[in-house]
Amino acid sequence: MTETTNPRLCPECERPVFGRADKKFCSDACRNAYNNRSNSDAVNLVRNINNTLRKNRRILLDLNPDGKTKLPKSKLLQKGFDFEYHTSIYTTKSGQQYRYCYDQGYLLLDDDFVLLIVKKDFN
């Protein structure tokens, strides 16, 4: 079977593909379009999570100008903070869990208060 009698077809545009035997797409544009479309769900998920993490960090940064602040949890919620997303958790020996959005952290306290902190040794 030769390429001239039964050419391979581009999975994006269905035009004949010529060239190397392992070539799958007729052009870089078709390859990019195909891969962008097939990866779009994963890319959108990651983009949305990253946007939420950046928003959370901005909120913590805005509400904690001095590096250590105690405030009501409702203040964070009013600004749109999403407690589901953080980049890491640090558990102290006493069992307290500090959650971080990159270098900006918080500790959930009793009575719906939150302690905001900055991780100093973050590089």
Rank of each mutant, 00 (worst) to 15 (best):
A29M: 09
D110A: 13
T92N: 04
L9F: 04
Q78L: 08
Q97A: 14
G105K: 02
G19M: 03
D41A: 11
F25S: 10
Y98M: 14
D62K: 11
R54M: 15
D28M: 09
R54G: 15
S88W: 06
A29N: 11
A33Y: 04
C10E: 01
E3T: 15
N39Q: 13
F25V: 05
V17H: 00
P72F: 08
N50K: 08
L63D: 00
N44E: 12
N123A: 14
R57G: 05
N64E: 00
N32Q: 07
S27K: 00
R31I: 10
L115E: 02
I49Q: 13
R54Y: 14
R37E: 15
T92Y: 03
V114F: 02
L107S: 05
P11G: 11
R37P: 04
A21S: 10
K68C: 09
L71T: 13
C26G: 00
P7Q: 07
T5S: 06
L9R: 10
N50G: 09
V43C: 10
S27I: 08
D103S: 15
P72K: 11
T87F: 01
L45G: 10
H86S: 13
P11M: 08
C101W: 02
N50S: 10
S94L: 14
L60W: 07
Q96G: 12
F122K: 14
C30K: 07
N44M: 14
S88M: 07
N6T: 14
T52D: 00
E84I: 13
N56R: 03
Y98P: 04
I49E: 11
N64G: 07
H86Q: 05
C26L: 00
